[in-house]
Design a protein around this nucleic acid. Sequence first.
DNA 1: ACGATTGACTCAATCGATTGTGTCTGATAG
DNA 2: CTATCAGACACAATCGATTGAGTCAATCGT
Lengths: 371, 371
Amino acid sequence: MPTRINQRPTQRQIAAQVGVSVTTVSRILNPDESHPERWASPETVAAIQQAAAQLGYRHNALAVSLRTSRSQTVGVLLPVVGDFVTASIYSGIDDVAREHGMTALTASTLDEPVLRAERTFSLLDHLVDGIIFADAHLDEDFLDSVATQAVPFTLVHRRHPDHVCVTADDVAAGRLAAQHFIDLGRRRMAVISGPRFMSTGVDRAQGFVDAIVEAGLPAPTVFDSALNVKSGGDATRAMLASSHFPDAIFAVHDGAALGVLSVLRHEGLSVPDDVAVIGFYDTPMSSAMELTSINVDLNNMGRRALELLLARLSDQQIESEVCPVTLTVRRSTDPSLPPGGHGPTAEPLTSTVQRAPHPAESSPQHVNPAP
Amino acid sequence: MPTRINQRPTQRQIAAQVGVSVTTVSRILNPDESHPERWASPETVAAIQQAAAQLGYRHNALAVSLRTSRSQTVGVLLPVVGDFVTASIYSGIDDVAREHGMTALTASTLDEPVLRAERTFSLLDHLVDGIIFADAHLDEDFLDSVATQAVPFTLVHRRHPDHVCVTADDVAAGRLAAQHFIDLGRRRMAVISGPRFMSTGVDRAQGFVDAIVEAGLPAPTVFDSALNVKSGGDATRAMLASSHFPDAIFAVHDGAALGVLSVLRHEGLSVPDDVAVIGFYDTPMSSAMELTSINVDLNNMGRRALELLLARLSDQQIESEVCPVTLTVRRSTDPSLPPGGHGPTAEPLTSTVQRAPHPAESSPQHVNPAP
DNA sequence: ACGATTGACTCAATCGATTGTGTCTGATAG
DNA sequence: CTATCAGACACAATCGATTGAGTCAATCGT
């Protein structure tokens, strides 16, 4: 038993053992040539393959990358790591990367321009073949400067006007939320958006406002927030302090929606009787809190972002993609649904533009009859 | 303006521009020598630094790694990516990596041995300086074979008897949960653990059982589960079907706890009147669901895991570490707490062994008086 | 029987940086 | 006046693999 410790076998070792040159070893171990067996006799091929297996040979990815200037690596820039949304997106990216024998390098930028630049350069130092940005800012031209570096990239989740991106259909999502509220007979709407530089919040709020105005209803107030529990709560308190309190709140992020629910409950207001609430992303918390939420396949968005990037790397023309959104109706907008949702195993109800009819439930506890 | 497109500047280019050899350029650009200015005259140093800045020179991480066989890179193997627990751990690792100018490479293994081996080798192909495993299995000796590769590693979150790891104090956590139930006067306990190969669930269940038996109470039933919402619900249904239904359930994962709550509510049982429930990890969902949960600083666990690994890389002796846990009491065990928790901005109550007294709240709506 | 083709390889440069060992010049010591 | 030394560099091998351009012998066609 060859107890190799501390030393990875190299092609040189295989060559020495078999009695050929490293050239031949390299050619045999890279079957990507058009003529697979053109470079050696069957016996030599077998001998090399056997030696490689016996020594436990593996390519040195660094050496290969250095020589070929193709690293089989993509960089992924996330605003934060450890959050449901970005983690789901990354998961999809990672899947595709693995399917293509590539490695995904991640870095978090905290939405800070300096950190983003630093970490982008750090990825480039590793000669990534391409980059996926999940943290685009609408108003920055950092991406243009990256384009100068001749490293292809795509955006995911947040869009930028000048670059290819894979986003949720955020405008449609906003319209979906608005239409749901309108169908419920709500009239005084509000929307909790995110920072202005995030296309997600901006587009969702835009769709929401547009649909409501088109329906002839008063334009909803737009609150900017940091899209977390605390800022959602703060926005809600701001609403409570204002003269006309809404009867329907659309938060473009479940975290913010949770803050909304928490403050409403704390203030003794009933959901959805007094205020209906819609969140976004349909996180596990949504079902736990019986929060109506908009769903988009984040995993698939990640997949598509990398697939587009790979297409681009194959010199194909690529175009931005918009992923469909659905609305999962729960008790935060529809009290006629049974408490406890549909049990822990049930799939959420989904709809594309209108609320889908939901199947009769075993114990429909009508807390309040629908208006 | 030098519109370099497509080409990163190299030391060779700097050397040519300044009129020195790449040797000198390399020495100047690596100030880690004992004699910083020993290799060139001040004028040359300035010229090289200026040329480097002007060209926008950056080290080629691959070339450096290849030559020095130190990649300044660590691999992180996670069971899944996109989950609160692993994402939080990774976040801590990533922070430390950045602080040390290193890069963290991640890979998810889905707890499948084949995938774990494959992805581990993939990391080794990139010449990672070390590896952090967050997906250790108690019963596997895969790690021993990795040890043969002479790549240092540490474990995090899940332990293995033979290797250095950073874990939560899982046994203490189990005891903490048990003591809380005992203090509440509960007598029929159950614990929902995870698969047998995860030390987390095993240790937590062990501590829980030990403390209860030591208190002279009947030993709780241990249910194995997959630690997700569905399996938590399944376990609860199994309990409901059995002869002696518990009045206290400790789930070693908030996801499973959510399944418990969901099924209990669906069956018309009251929490905590009929059944008290404790979860684990104190996820955002815990506070949303008013779930009493055990908290451990996952981010810090990640930090420590990498810090230990780096110490090990500096040839220091390292030892396993156990991180303290705390219990955050909410309404799933204590109905005397006000609904809505402490508002979205409040810090959770924490305690180390006993439940801490909680501050008086503005509107303490006593839904049910404490027993 | 002889040039041409094919099969089976090898040579050597190269990717970008690091590093042990020179080399050369001018200043200093003796 | 020369041996010595330090300062300021350069040479060239090396890390592990890839790749265009050979080399050499056997085989083939005519």
